[in-house]
Write a protein that binds this DNA or RNA. Structure first.
Lengths: 137, 137
DNA sequence: ACAATATAAGAAAGTTATTAACTTATGGTG
DNA sequence: CACCATAAGTTAATAACTTTCTTATATTGT
């Protein structure tokens, strides 16, 4: 259980129900789109405005507590910022799985003859997950 | 000089000026956004409609001749489909550089204990290019 | 707990991005 | 070079996102 309330307050942002709900939803579902968030939270907060979602997602990205993830052929998703990791994406069921892998080797190879100082990487591997593989076969 | 005219005709698509211009612009600039394309081509085709750009970019993706590339903090770009490669992105000057690297090792590590069959990968490494590094120092 | 106040939520209008529907134009074929 | 299928352009429609303004509420000091 991450203490989002304290995190927000340390950044001088009020810990409103809406913000906490956005963060907690992301924390439990791992990857959500704006649309997901709105649909899910509307049930709990019937007066919730989509502008609030957009506004807060942007702010929370600015302070770094959430991260935007862009994956081919999918709407933009958002996740709680954590250890750098890559995404394994199933093109059949659209499941997104986090995986921590060592990218040093890849980065070294990519930059070996050019002076590029890499600061972050965005890696998605798209294919078919084991469950969907079974169903297809 | 790629023969885009023939490629289009083989796919039963008419080789219109607009389509050829889109493909040739992409081929020379490597990575362009919808907005880039529109601005560039408007000079040559003053009656060009943005709907034509959207429509054709979508169609050309469908037949596989162009590929959509999603990079953090950038508008969606498009490129002529070629050998699988990764993108090195400079966050200062926004330059995007293509690089062919072997991703087998990364994919093997990412999928070693789960049955995920990877079909394609989308990899962007973001940082500062050598030119911008020099200017900063 | 309570009042004061700064900040955030909600509502609605305003932009920008993208798609659809329809009419005119044009590339490819005979 | 005429025919016709398909594409371009125009405009309207929808979707995605942002801004503005008013009301509500989380914090801070009492």
């Amino acid at each position: 259980m991450i203490d989002f309330k304290t995190i927000l307050q340390e950044r001088n942002l009020k810990a409103t129900h809406q913000r906490l709900a956005i963060l907690e939803t992301m924390n439990s579902l791992k990857h959500v789109s704006i649309e997901n968030l709105y649909d899910l939270l509307l049930a709990k907060y019937p007066t919730l405005s989509k502008a609030t979602i957009y506004r807060n997602v942007k702010e929370l990205i600015t302070i770094g507590i959430i991260t935007e993830i862009k994956i081919p052929d999918m709407p933009t998703n958002y996740e709680i910022t954590k250890m750098p990791h890559i995404h394994l994406v199933c093109k059949i069921c659209n499941k997104i799985e986090d995986k921590i892998v060592d990218t040093k080797c890849l980065i070294d190879e990519a930059t070996k003859d050019i002076g590029f100082r890499i600061e972050k990487s965005s890696i998605s591997l798209v294919g078919v997950c084991s469950e969907c593989s079974k169903l297809q076969a």
